Amino acid sequence: MTNQLTPMPDDWQRALAIVAHPDDLEYGCAAAIATWTAAGREVSYVLATRGEAGIDTLDPAEAGPVREREQRASAAVVGVRSVEFLDHADGVIEYGVALRRDLAAAIRRHRPELVITLNADDTWEGTHWNSPDHRAVGRAVLDAAGDAGNRWIFRGLEEPWDGVRWVAVAGSDSPTHAVDVTHTLEQGVRSLLEHRAYIAALTTEPPEAYVRNLIEGFAQQEAARFGGRPAITFRLFPC
């Protein structure tokens, strides 16, 4: 079979996942993170917002703390202890120097070898228009990975870190690499289930059925290109 996916590199110790909202990592990527933490690697999360505009039935002042609690619980399921929120406004994140600066600062603080983010393309699978927050943050992450190592950009932040070796984009329509999640798929399901308030507002399906169908479906989608194994896919950019 052509276009087989390559296993993700495993010669690293620290990763930093940077996304726009609570739940972004749980829609498919968390099972891969569970695989890495189970192998003794350190993964931290940085979220640009608290997801305060994400629940139609909750005022943002109430929704933000709820979604923060759900995100911390969700991260714990897959072995992630460090979760930071940057307090950009949900729904109206702007790509630009200010965002790049905040993300470069986060990379310098955490000093990862692998940076993970979410699809920044205009669409999902060429059909569904992508969130402006996803597009802004994903693009800024790719730029900030380089900014973090340049001592002449964003002076006055933490010491530059030029140790980022790859940026891995989850949810890409053109993945190049994958992680076998045979043994951590259930953790991926439970991780998304922690976003109970969000899911309750999103669907009338029973939460476990909704989550299991999604996560197991994502993992099987590219299995034929990865030896028949359930897989989480990434587009990997070397730095």
Rank of each mutant, 00 (worst) to 15 (best):
A20H: 06
F154Q: 09
D59M: 06
A63F: 01
V80Y: 01
D122F: 03
A231L: 08
G79Y: 02
H88S: 02
E52N: 01
V66K: 05
G28N: 05
A148P: 09
R135M: 12
A39G: 11
A63H: 01
A30D: 09
D90T: 06
V189E: 08
A120Y: 10
R155A: 15
D59H: 14
E62A: 14
P112K: 09
H195L: 09
R14N: 11
A105V: 05
N3C: 09
P22I: 09
E113W: 01
L58W: 10
W166V: 15
G79F: 05
G217R: 09
R108M: 13
H110Y: 08
V141R: 08
D147T: 04
L192K: 00
L214C: 05
L103P: 04
P175H: 04
E42V: 11
R135H: 04
A53Q: 12
T57I: 09
W129M: 14
R139T: 13
E70S: 03
G188H: 04
T204K: 05
S44M: 05
T182K: 03
L192F: 10
D102P: 02
E26H: 01
G54W: 02
P238F: 05
C239L: 15
I55W: 00
L16V: 05
A104M: 12
G217S: 12
W129I: 14
I199K: 01
A39P: 01
T37M: 08
P22W: 10
R72H: 04
A170Y: 14
P238T: 15
E68F: 01
T37N: 08
G171H: 07
F234Y: 15
T49M: 03
A39F: 03
R41M: 06
E194A: 15
I153A: 15
D180E: 10
A98Y: 02
A223M: 07
E222T: 08
I93D: 02
E52R: 00
E113L: 04
Q13L: 10
E186P: 00
V78R: 00
G28Q: 07
S82R: 11
D87N: 13
R155P: 09
A75C: 04
R72N: 07
E222R: 12
A200F: 02
L202P: 01
D90N: 04
T117C: 14
R100I: 12
G138D: 13
L114S: 00
G126V: 07
G64R: 03
M8R: 06
V83E: 10
A148K: 03
Y210K: 06
E42L: 07
R235Q: 15
A197C: 06
E186I: 00
F154D: 15
W166F: 13
D102V: 13
W129V: 15
S74W: 00
V80N: 01
A120I: 00
T117H: 08
R108W: 10
G51T: 07
D143F: 05
S191H: 03
T123Q: 11
T6Q: 14
T123M: 11
V167P: 04
R190K: 02
T6N: 11
V179T: 13
V77R: 04
P207N: 08
L192E: 00
P22M: 11
L86A: 12
S74C: 04
A61R: 07
W166H: 15
R196A: 15
R225H: 14
M8P: 00
A197N: 08
I107C: 04
D11R: 08
S174H: 11
T127M: 13
L192V: 03
L185P: 00
Y210D: 12
H128A: 13
V97E: 15
W129R: 13
A197Q: 07
A31F: 02
V164L: 12
E26N: 10
A219Q: 03
